[in-house]
Amino acid sequence: MKLTLHIWRQKNAQSKGHFEKFQMNDVSEDMSFLEMLDLLNERLISEGKDAIAFDHDCREGICGACSLTINGTPHGPEAATTTCQLHMRKFKDGDTLYIEPFRSRAFPVIKDLIVDRSAFDRIMAAGGFVSVRTGQPQDANAIPISKEKADLAMDAAACIGCGACVASCPNGAAMLFVSAKISQFAMLPQGQPERKRRALNMVNQMDKEGFGACTNHYECEAVCPKKISVRFIAQMNRDYLKARILKEKD
């Protein structure tokens, strides 16, 4: 396959950044998108040029490290797929692709296509956990959980925290991520003791990080590689309201 790539290059957080054009003539349909970039980087390195910096880790769609906005869609055109799992056969010979970093004020560019997503870590630290006392492990079946609840909690827990929701959002909002992280516990008995406090603290941290306010376009749900549903945002709204208005902590 032949491809024309316009890739965002930016030396560091302070510099302005610009697009650089690359011509690819030897792309295999069986490559993943990241392998296609590896190929380009090998060429750049052999030419003594600076390789394109992009995030990746597991390359099997479970870690959430890979990013990239490809022709205006985070993780590219294939629904429910991370960039690392996106195959080049999804594109046509002769295509022109614009490859940009995930854009949002709260995700500053570090270099080229890598952005700093540590805002998500700080939101998690504000309440994305259950406090568990150490001691004897209790019997696995001691706490009954219905199949429906367990499934729903798993759906929320499928979030890999990649930040595509923020990148796709016209408002730079992080509500899909935050709501998934709140809901995975809100559905389960283990999450109840800190439920309202968690919603309050995580939403407050989200606001502090400078993420926007959702206006319910559901663009996030459409691009999410894990198909996280916006019903969790509604769930978060309910929990947060109960915590704020009723001033209930738990």
Binding site: R105, A173, G212
Partner: peptide, 11 residues
């Protein structure tokens, strides 16, 4: 929201 979005996408 305008602030939060920051730089616009080219595409």
């Amino acid at each position: 929201n305008f602030q939060a979005k920051g730089q616009k996408y080219e595409v």
